[in-house]
């Protein structure tokens, strides 16, 4: 009988150990992924998500930099920004800029990618050359173009003179400044977007195109009926990326025109910066950022709707 109790106790103990071991194992297993994620989550929470929340909060307070003097003002910052003529003008400039810039970049990127995807002679050399601008920083590329498009000393005006076109003022007059910014951004933007099209084109099986050819499809037919539909996802990716990058474009404006002349290149991100950093209106600047993010989200939503795939 005593032996029985002892036996019982020992089996109880061992089963306790078993349960405990299992529990520890589960616990360990459950914790491991979170431990691995911890550094990433902490960094992104502190340096990306918190700023976003803080911007939302900031947009409801007065524009004072000192923390104790700030005051809750509700939607006052939003109404002030939304009733500002300069804000609307900046928004208009941003839309005009992007309605020209994004289609040009996406279309030319696609054309160049299709050409570079062929097996023609010397293609790999051209591939390397065309991708060079990607490696260059915005400071370098804007400095280059600013100098090249200078009215007096610019080499571009020298080239134009060779073909008998008079000097252009480029960044100096409001009729040309925005177009000049389009050139500067496209120089880097087209090759960048081209990479993704090229990657997408290389994933299309050659066999499909060969089969179409045997069935008597012309090059144009197989491009529009096969290649383009198969590129739809990449196309959506490129369009969305290019839209985000260009709606919030800042560096070339900051480095070349500072929004001028006569606010003709005052893109919305630069206006946000001007309001916050130059005029010290942080509340208004935050409200404007929220509006911009909402606009970007709406535009992206429309693009996703338009490009929605059934698969």
């Amino acid at each position: 009988m005593r032996g029985g109790v002892f036996k019982n106790a020992s089996s109880l103990f061992s089963s306790y150990l078993n349960v405990r071991r299992k529990y520890m194992k589960i616990k360990q297993k459950n914790l491991a992924p979170y431990l691995l994620l911890l550094p990433a989550l902490a960094l992104l929470l502190v340096f990306r998500i918190y700023p976003m929340i803080s911007t939302v909060i900031e947009s409801f307070y007065t524009n004072n930099l000192t923390a104790d003097a700030r005051e809750f003002v509700g939607f006052a910052n939003f109404t002030r920004v939304l009733s500002d003529q300069i804000f609307w003008k900046s928004l208009k400039v941003t839309f005009v800029f992007n309605l020209i810039n994004i289609p040009i970049q996406v279309f030319l990127a696609l054309v160049v990618a299709v050409i570079l995807n062929s097996r023609a002679r010397g293609i790999s050399l051209f591939r390397s050359i065309v991708m060079i601008p990607i490696a260059v920083s915005p400071v370098v590329s804007t400095t280059l173009w600013k100098t090249m498009m200078d009215y007096n000393a610019g080499v571009l005006n020298g080239l134009l003179a060779l073909v008998g076109i008079p000097r252009q003022e480029f960044f100096l007059v409001k009729e040309q400044a925005l177009w000049s910014i389009v050139i500067v951004t496209a120089w880097k933007g087209i090759p960048y977007m081209m990479i993704f099209f090229l990657a997408g084109l290389q994933e299309i099986p050659v066999a499909v195109l060969e089969a179409a050819k045997i069935d008597g499809a012309s090059s144009w037919q197989s491009f529009f009926k096969i290649t383009l539909p198969l590129l739809k996802r990449v196309f959506a990716f490129v369009l969305v990326t290019d839209t985000i990058l260009n709606l919030i474009l800042f560096a070339p404006i900051w480095l070349i025109t500072k929004g001028g002349p006569q606010l003709s290149t005052n893109l919305i991100m630069y206006e946000t910066y001007r309001r916050g950093m130059v005029y010290g209106d942080l509340g208004g600047s935050s409200a404007m950022l929220i509006v911009v993010i909402l606009i970007v989200a709406i535009v992206l939503g429309l693009q996703f709707l338009a490009l929605r795939t059934d698969d």
């Binding site: 700023p51 919030i248 910066y273 942080l282 911009v292 993010i293 970007v296 989200a297």
Partner: peptide
């Protein structure tokens, strides 16, 4: 999707 400008000051 958050623009770099949002991150600067915070």
């Amino acid at each position: 999707m958050i623009p770099g400008m949002v991150l600067m000051i915070p």
